[in-house]
């Protein structure tokens, strides 16, 4: 691609990654969540791939695959945490400690340290979606060799 696209991509990629991380981190307070944040972060990978070609992202293929597997495993393990009650029960909500602050009922500004297993599942699914969509796009980019036009 041309130098304009490369320069804009160099500026925009960190911004998109930070916004994806924000959407995942505040998934239990504001609109968004794991899938949406992972898709936004994966669009940064798409921008890198379109702007710089496949060789620039070739070494990201194995980390993305590992990230996808780890996200899926973490999601299922967090689901098993609630097995004393039921599968997928929110066993950390309101218990104190990590993400355990109680939430007042009704409209409030939101407490970041709340939600129990929901924010952790947000991170797991976010990394899973980022890894999955990123691996798919890197594989598509590497398909049939690289002919950068």
């Amino acid at each position: 691609m041309s130098v304009v696209v490369k320069t804009i991509a160099r500026i925009l990629v960190p911004v998109i990654l930070v916004f994806g991380g924000y959407v995942i981190l505040h998934g239990h307070l504001t609109p968004g969540g794991g899938f949406q944040g992972g898709a936004v972060a994966a669009s940064a990978v798409a921008l890198l791939l379109v702007a710089f070609g496949a060789p620039a992202v070739k070494r990201l293929k194995a980390p993305f695959s590992v990230l996808e597997d780890l996200g899926g495993i973490a999601f299922v393990v967090l689901a098993f945490l609630g097995l004393g009650f039921t599968f997928f029960a929110n066993s950390l909500a309101g218990m104190g400690g990590l993400f355990g602050a109680p939430v007042p009922t009704g409209p409030n500004a939101g407490i970041l340290n709340s939600g129990g297993t929901v924010p952790l599942m947000n991170w797991a699914v976010g990394f899973k979606v980022l890894g999955g969509l990123g691996a798919v796009m890197v594989l598509f980019g590497l398909f049939g060799g690289d002919d950068d036009r």
Partner: peptide
């Protein structure tokens, strides 16, 4: 807000009440 301690109701449904779908 009481059961899942989540302000965003959509995320509470997706990750807590309807976790099987996710």
């Amino acid at each position: 807000q009481r059961e899942a301690a989540t302000n965003n109701v959509v995320t509470a449904i997706v990750f807590d009440y309807r976790g099987y779908d996710t």
